[in-house]
């Protein structure tokens, strides 16, 4: 089963209600591979590890079929002015 960018976006949107979400398919056609940036209120007050855990949990269903996932940013709105 191939996981698509749309699947990843849908899963993250429904669990984390992000105010910013960017999913980039980096698979180049071999194995599902994504990079993502996400801003969500659910990350407020959470450490980086916990924020990544929330992303992993949101993608629990897709993870077994994703070869590589790189979480570039997972920030709460308060830390996410478009810097860097």
């Amino acid at each position: 089963m191939a996981v698509t960018k749309d699947d990843v976006e849908a899963a993250l949107t429904s669990s984390l209600n992000p105010s910013h979400l960017q999913v980039i398919d980096t698979s180049r056609g071999c194995g599902a591979s994504f990079e993502l940036e996400i801003v969500s209120e659910k990350f407020e007050g959470k450490r980086l590890l916990e924020r990544h855990r929330l992303v992993n949990a949101a993608l629990a269903e897709q993870m077994p079929h994703i070869h590589a996932l790189s979480i570039k940013k997972a920030l709460p709105p308060s830390q996410s002015p478009a810097r860097s």
Partner: peptide, 25 residues
């Protein structure tokens, strides 16, 4: 670790995270 991917890094007995987190830190 309740973490789905590798690598997984532990420092002084504590789970730190995967490569994204290590790079970030």
């Amino acid at each position: 670790s309740n973490w789905p991917t590798f690598p997984q890094v532990f420092i002084k007995g504590e789970f730190v995270g995967g490569s994204d987190i290590v790079l970030n830190m």
